Computed example of a mutant assay.
Amino acid sequence: MTAAKLPEQCETKEDVRTEIDRIDQALLSLFAERHGYVTRMAQIKSDPHEAYDKTRIEAIVAKQRSRALALDLDEDQAELIWRTLIDWNINYEKGIIAARRRAQ
């Protein structure tokens, strides 16, 4: 595998696409790692209603907006990504918790 190029070192569209693909793979690996923790959280929680914590969600979103600004990223886009991720995690957790309770 070739060394990563900085954006300003990319001279062709293919160079840029290669770097985006490399980053996408890294992101996917991080999402998979994060998913393991979400699964563990669902195993720890005992009630499907625990999956939704409005106060915690708003704190996470505020933190990500602040982090995005510090990285010179669009904070609205970061919020959209995190709210989508959180919504998916809530539904996933609820499903695991509900299935476990039905099996008991």
Rank of each mutant, 00 (worst) to 15 (best):
L71Y: 07
A103C: 05
D74T: 05
Q43H: 10
K54A: 15
K63G: 13
R40D: 12
I90A: 05
Q64Y: 09
R101F: 00
M1C: 12
A51H: 02
R100V: 02
A103I: 03
S66G: 09
M1A: 15
A68L: 01
L30F: 11
A3R: 07
D74F: 05
R67W: 10
D47C: 05
D53R: 01
A51F: 00
A103N: 07
E50L: 04
A62F: 04
L80V: 01
Q104R: 07
I81F: 06
N91L: 12
Q43V: 03
E14S: 08
R102A: 15
S66L: 08
A98D: 10
F31D: 12
L85M: 10
R102Q: 11
E14V: 06
T18E: 14
D76S: 14
D74G: 08
Y92S: 04
I23D: 13
L27D: 09
K5E: 03
S46G: 08
L69S: 12
V61E: 05
L85H: 06
A78H: 00
D47F: 06
W82K: 08
Y52Q: 06
D21L: 14
A78P: 00
S46D: 10
E19Q: 10
R56A: 15
K5L: 15
K45H: 06
E8F: 14
E14W: 00
R101C: 03
V16K: 03
I86S: 02
L73C: 11
S29C: 10
R65Q: 11
F31T: 08
H49K: 10
D72G: 04
R40Y: 06
D87E: 15
L71H: 08
R22H: 08
H49F: 10
L6M: 09
L73M: 12
Y52W: 07
I23M: 14
Q43N: 15
K54E: 15
L27A: 13
I97R: 01
L71Q: 11
K5T: 01
Y92G: 01
I57M: 09
E19S: 03
R34E: 13
Q77W: 07
A51L: 01
L73A: 09
A70I: 05
M1Q: 09
A51I: 00
S66Q: 09
Y92M: 04
D24K: 11
A51V: 01
E93K: 07
A70V: 03
R56G: 06
H35C: 10
A78D: 03
G36W: 01
N91M: 11
G95E: 03
V38I: 14
A4F: 06
G36Y: 00
R40V: 07
L69P: 02
W88D: 12
K94F: 01
D24M: 14
D15H: 04
E79W: 00
K54H: 11
T39V: 12
D47Y: 04
L85V: 04
E33W: 11
D76T: 09
R40I: 07
Y92V: 00
A59N: 12
T2H: 07
L73H: 03
T2S: 15
L28S: 15
N91R: 13
